[in-house]
Design a protein around this nucleic acid. Structure first.
Length: 659
DNA sequence: CAAGTAACAAGAGCATAATTGTGC
DNA sequence: GCACAATTATGCTCTTGTTACTTG
């Protein structure tokens, strides 16, 4: 589907249902108004006059429930918005079409951070418990000029520069004082959730298509958290700059056969203009909410089936940020932002027809997901050196700036833990740069083992391995065990978790969960169809425990020999849940190391083996029929071929180094 | 003076052409 | 010697953060 046909560059359609900012004076919906309130409104036909029906809805979707953070918002007409069933118990997962083991949430495990609308909705009583972040909300107001989107302003997310203050959650006045009062309802976060659904309409979801409620996982969340801790900055340039970390999600709970458009929207996170002063970000005046320009980035794969979206990681690695208002060429979608403003990316999933047309006859089937850790301040030049260093350390493209990197490692270049741009975004169209998603993550974990002379020493203060057994982890409550990695409102409930949540998320525990939790079913999928995808990489990483365990025994955590990348069939096809006691208990520190190894190996594997082998096979058109399928090729490589070449279980290294 | 811009160097992937090896 | 396959080399493109300069 050609995006240009479905995504008007200028007049982006709005979801039928959205939150309309209203104030005491309807005409005065200025974001700066202290009387501003957000209300759910039903989109009228007239309102969408300028919005062609053929579009990717979502432009103006902001708002629904601001706070969708960690809680997907679904503008379901049956009032169930915000109540997608969480995987484990899973109504959504138990859906007829999605109940396949392949997408069984149980198999997905709880290690991943995902948003469940239902969770959010069920925990509205204590919105603050949903997030460790303060004032994480999300609202949308209707621009006076009718172009809601372009003028949309999102005041929902307010992240205190100081960090995460739970106090904010308990006081809406903060916003009021700041001139932004949110009609969030009780609490500061997602009070509007329950109302959201009910306000949309009475039509109930069929249960299948419209009823498919998605759960979204932020794949590289640990990395995001790292940046978030220092207040993420994103460079914007005239030509457009990619985000790093970039947005990468895994989605579950969609109707396998239904079509969806998936896109990211970047909205203003707060009403302030920011300035980096005295080593920290401080507000400096009001934000300019008149910024024109595209705020959306539609995933190139849109529209596509739910099966497709759930098959592999959905990466937005090619999403570019620019400050060039005129930069809106159809070839490369760029999101126009304004420097020194804080933004909040949001993921929208809109069910559409096969042609990519939203079914206007049906109520909005929009699901919105917001992760507070995705917030960032747009800058034209980095302000915080910590951020700069993090970027350099984690972004493969900035490898050249790692002055001390080589000296810091004894391992040769090829064996670095540092990801390599081998996983070029150009290497795969479906998951552009997706593999990067894991790369930063890999390093994200290893970086903690780097010498202490790194800039962001604060991170060194985080006892990665110890955190697994830290009191905080233990105090994390029930969520610390089985659902430790499962960011749900329930898990985060409790005031004492406000602080812990972040720490825990940021801790090695979180990281570990990423590393050790396989997605066996999706893994096989990813490997079968998108061997080059980040998902495959991730899956591989999660499935190499046994190997890296061996590596660990060598006592060389930085062993230059990456562990075998092979994806044991047992891991490819069978759930490994039972093999992961970590799910029910915090993994021991040793597992942390193991995970690291696995990740490293995967990284190396993914970037090395795949490129090498696939390139080679490209020259063999006369080969077997399977040669035509890149995915199969790699699958063969990672399984059959690997096993063949390593009948004795030889380390992957041998294969890797053998031309 | 802060912010924005353009040029720069470094690292890396990809496409293509050139070279080399193999089989007939 | 020819044809084909495989490998290697080269140039282009892309990415990154840095730097110097310009702009308001």
């Amino acid at each position: 589907m050609q995006l240009e046909n479905i995504l008007p560059s200028s007049s982006i359609n709005l979801p039928k249902t959205f939150y309309n900012l209203s104030s005491s004076d309807s005409a005065n919906n200025s974001p700066g108004s202290s009387q501003i309130e957000y209300q759910e409104v039903e989109r009228t036909e007239s309102e969408s006059t300028n919005a062609p029906k053929k579009y990717l809805s979502g432009a103006g979707m902001m708002g629904e429930g601001e706070g969708d953070t960690f809680s997907g918002t679904k503008t379901a007409p049956d009032g169930r918005k915000g109540s997608p069933v969480l995987g484990g118990g899973g109504g959504g997962v138990e859906d007829d079409l999605t109940s396949g083991r392949r997408y069984n949430i149980d198999d997905l495990g709880s290690d991943r951070y995902f948003i469940s609308s239902s969770q959010a909705g069920s925990d509205m009583a204590n919105p603050c418990s949903l997030f460790p972040y303060a004032g994480q909300t999300g609202s949308v107001y209707s621009a006076s000029n009718g172009s809601r989107y372009s003028a949309s302003l999102h005041y929902g997310s307010v992240l205190p520069p100081a960090g995460f203050s739970s106090s904010v959650c308990s006081s809406r006045s903060q916003f009021a004082s700041g001139g932004y009062q949110f009609s969030q309802g009780p609490g500061c976060l997602y009070p509007s959730y329950p109302a959201t659904g009910s306000s949309i309409g009475s039509m109930s979801l069929p249960g299948s298509a419209a009823g498919a409620r998605a759960q979204v996982y932020l794949c590289n969340r640990p990395l995001w958290l790292k940046f978030h801790r220092h207040q993420t900055e994103m460079i914007i340039t005239k030509q457009g700059r990619r985000m790093f970390p970039f947005l990468s999600f895994n989605i579950t709970g969609l109707n396998l056969t239904a079509h969806y458009n998936v896109f990211v929207e970047v909205i203003l996170a707060d009403p302030n203009h920011w300035r980096f002063q005295g080593g920290k970000w401080v507000t400096c005046g009001k934000a300019d909410n008149n910024m024109q320009g595209n705020k959306m980035y539609v995933h190139p794969e849109s529209p596509n089936t739910g099966a497709h979206w759930m098959r592999q990681e959905i990466s937005f690695g090619k999403l570019k940020l620019t400050n060039n208002k005129g930069a809106n060429n159809n070839n490369t979608q760029m999101i126009v932002l304004q420097s020194l403003h804080k933004y909040q990316p949001r993921l929208h999933i809109v069910e559409v027809t096969e042609e990519g047309v939203e079914d206007m006859s049906n109520e909005a089937k929009t699901q919105t997901f917001t992760f507070p850790e995705n917030q960032f301040i747009a800058v034209t030049a980095y302000q915080n050196t910590d951020i700069t260093q993090l970027k350099i350390d984690h972004n493969p493209f900035a490898k050249g700036f790692r002055d001390n990197y080589d000296s810091m490692y004894t391992a040769p270049e090829s064996d670095r833990l540092t990801p390599s741009p081998t996983d070029s975004p150009r290497s795969h169209q479906i998951v552009p740069g997706a593999r990067y998603a894991m790369q930063p993550f890999f390093q994200d974990q290893f970086v903690n083992q780097l010498p202490q002379n790194r800039f962001y020493s604060s991170e060194r203060a985080v006892p990665q391995t110890n955190s697994l057994l830290s009191p905080q982890s233990e105090d994390a409550g029930a969520g610390a065990s089985t659902q430790r990695w499962f960011v749900t409102p329930v898990q985060q409930a409790g005031s004492n978790k406000l602080d812990l949540s972040y720490e825990n998320d940021y801790s090695t525990s979180s990281l570990l969960s990423y590393g050790i939790k396989p997605l066996p079913l999706q893994t096989s999928h990813a490997l079968s169809y998108y061997p080059d995808s980040a998902f495959a990489s991730m899956a591989a990483g999660w499935g190499t425990r046994s190997t890296y365990q061996r590596k660990v025994t060598t006592g060389l955590p930085w062993s230059p020999r990456p562990s075998p990348p092979a994806f044991p069939e047992e891991q490819l096809g069978a759930p490994t849940k039972d093999k992961l006691p970590e799910e029910s208990a915090p993994p021991p520190a040793s597992n942390w190391l193991e995970t690291s190894h696995s990740l490293k190996s995967v990284d190396s594997t993914d970037s090395g083996v795949y490129s090498m082998v696939c390139k080679r096979r490209r020259m063999s058109p006369g080969g077997s029929s399977t040669e035509n399928s890149p995915s199969i090729k790699c699958e063969d490589l990672t399984t059959d071929e690997y096993n063949k070449d390593n009948p004795k279980g030889m380390g992957y290294y041998a294969f890797y180094t053998s031309p």
